[in-house]
Amino acid sequence: GHYRIRINGREFEIRGISEEEIRHLEEALRNGADEKILKEIVDRLRG
């Protein structure tokens, strides 16, 4: 998958993330885990 997200007015492209991972992120966001989720995304993109 290849997705664009906007955070604090800046747009980011996220590549190589699966539909299942996105559902997991959405679930966590609904549970209020904003900073933790951003850290997970950044860590994943770093490799």
Rank of each mutant, 00 (worst) to 15 (best):
E26A: 05
E21V: 06
I41M: 14
L25P: 00
H24S: 12
R44T: 08
I5W: 02
E13V: 15
H2W: 15
D34P: 13
I5D: 00
G47P: 11
R46G: 15
I5M: 02
R10W: 11
D43E: 10
R23C: 05
I41L: 11
A28D: 03
Y3R: 02
E20Y: 09
I7T: 01
G9P: 00
G32C: 10
I5F: 06
L25M: 04
R23K: 14
E27A: 12
G1C: 14
A33M: 12
E35P: 11
I17C: 07
G1T: 04
I5S: 00
L45H: 06
E27P: 01
K39D: 05
I17A: 14
I41F: 11
E35N: 06
R4A: 02
L25A: 01
N8D: 05
R46K: 13
N8M: 07
R30A: 12
R30D: 06
R15K: 09
D43Q: 10
I41S: 02
G16K: 04
E11L: 13
E11W: 15
G47Q: 11
D43F: 04
I41G: 01
K39T: 12
I14W: 02
E13L: 10
A28Q: 09
R23D: 05
I17P: 02
K36A: 12
E11G: 01
Y3I: 06
E27Q: 10
E20N: 08
I22Q: 04
I22H: 03
V42M: 09
I41R: 02
F12H: 02
G32I: 07
Y3H: 03
F12A: 00
E11V: 15
H24A: 09
I41P: 00
K36Y: 13
D34F: 15
E13Y: 15
E13G: 01
K39R: 14
Y3T: 02
I5Y: 03
G16E: 05
I17G: 04
G9N: 04
I37T: 14
E19S: 10
H24L: 13
G16S: 06
R10A: 09
D43S: 09
G1L: 07
K39L: 15
I37D: 06
E13R: 03
A28E: 06
I17Y: 02
Y3C: 04
V42D: 02
L38W: 07
L25H: 00
H24E: 14
R44L: 10
R30I: 09
L38Q: 01
E35F: 14
E19T: 11
N31Y: 10
L45W: 12
D34G: 12
I22R: 04
L25N: 00
E35V: 10
E35R: 04
G1Y: 10
L25G: 00
D34Y: 15
S18G: 07
R10L: 12
D34K: 05
Y3L: 12
D34S: 14
I14Y: 02
R30L: 10
A28M: 15
G32A: 06
V42K: 02
S18E: 03
R23V: 08
H24I: 14
I37M: 10
L25E: 00
L45A: 04
K36L: 12
F12Y: 15
I17H: 02
I22L: 07
I14K: 00
Y3M: 10
V42Q: 04
E11N: 04
I22P: 00
I7G: 00
R4D: 01
